[in-house]
Design a protein around this nucleic acid. Structure first.
Lengths: 229, 229
DNA sequence: CGGCATCCGGGAAGATACTG
DNA sequence: CAGTATCTTCCCGGATGCCG
């Protein structure tokens, strides 16, 4: 049957507001939408990867969101070339441009007293947080190539003094590599947890130039929490 | 009876994600929340004003949102001093800091092919859009004090070359004043509609230095629309 | 298994009526 | 004017099943 959601044009749950911010809410205001975009921020991903990294989203909702975001022109479905022949979802160039807005939202919200940094964290969230909280003042011209192996997902961060670039890539050529789950790495960077502690627990492995790693984790100051009144 | 939403702690509709962006969605991800914040961006407002400016929100939902935002520390309820003695809602300092994120969302979303600038617009949206789209390149050191009377709401924008400051204030001391509804002003600024056109229609009145007004409306270039594939 | 449709229960949003 | 109470409608989330 498939009725194709006939109402179509009159779908009626929009804001009817010319403001760009209201438009943004039409585009990514539904539950999970913005987090789907976040997960795609470092390149194409498969349905199952998205579902796994967005702890708790159900398959039908993910399907809906991917469809809506594709219709909005924020992402596209694409077939990886043979022999892979798997379907992936990838942001459009405009979709990638939402990163600034996503980062600003995160930067603002992280100051909430309710923010709990000990909750689970996806690999993409962690990498994105580096771009958000990077302090060029603390980096002060420093340069390094830092790798990450986060349970199957691999990234390389290149600190070049002014900025940090992060891409999905094989970290084997990096100066130093963190190997652990995202929460563990986050506890080093944002919780000032000693490396030895995590290593003793068996949840972290550092390979390469350890001194660089020790410096790296100091580059990302969190914004101050809001005072509770 | 009022059961007081017993589930309380286990309410379960959160994202369970340490990412700041996910936290932002907890705080302002519910329908209408971010637009309520937007409406408060230029100072305290009353319940009825908010309801009127957010075309279409129902009273019970607005009540819920105001309660939630207050609990989150984003806004506070406050009694204006006697003899006004009316209740108003006002952003906390941290609430005001969300402006950057709101602007970035708007800037990004305005590039959507689906964005329709002819829809209704609140006064706060229009004023906020000035801060979003202001081009210091076009202003090029120019200075002016521009007033707005938007159906009872009054604002003054001060262009000082580098930036534009907008506050709620009596525009009678401004160099020039726009008097009309927000949609009309928007059509001048973003639609390049001739002043004479709107004046002839009786929806616009310019008082003061008209040349300043003509220049003012050129300072706010819209970002290019995304190409439709 | 990846992707998507369908059915269902609970809860949030919308509209309206009502109260101090 | 500032909300509250109530009812309806719609969306979210889970389970299940189909099909490649």
């Amino acid at each position: 049957m498939k009725l194709e959601n006939v109402t179509e044009v009159s779908s009626k749950r929009w804001y009817d507001d010319a403001c760009g911010t209201a438009m943004a809410l039409e585009l990514i205001g539904e539950r999970w939408s913005l987090l789907v975009v976040r997960e795609l921020m470092f390149g194409p991903r498969r349905f199952g990867e998205l579902k796994a990294d967005l702890g708790g989203i159900s398959a039908n909702v993910l399907t809906q969101r991917l469809g809506g975001l594709a219709r909005a022109g924020i992402l596209t479905r694409r077939m990886l070339p043979s022999p892979a022949s798997v379907q992936v979802y990838e942001l459009t160039p405009w979709g990638y441009e939402s990163e600034t807005a996503i980062r600003e939202l995160g930067r603002w919200a992280a100051r909430s007293p309710a923010h709990d940094p000990t909750l689970p964290l996806s690999a993409a969230s962690l990498m994105l947080s580096f771009r958000t909280t990077f302090s060029r003042q603390r980096a002060d011209g420093w340069t390094a190539l830092v790798g990450f192996r986060l349970g199957g997902e691999e990234f390389v961060g290149r600190v070049d003094g002014d900025w940090i670039h992060v891409v999905r890539a094989d970290p084997s050529a990096a100066d130093v590599t963190f190997d652990g789950d995202p929460m563990t790495i986050a506890s080093l960077v944002y919780g000032a947890r000693p490396f030895r502690d995590a290593e003793a627990a068996g949840t972290l492995q550092i390979t390469g130039n350890r001194a660089l790693a020790e410096r790296f984790v100091t580059l990302f100051p969190l914004p101050d929490k809001v005072a509770v009144e």
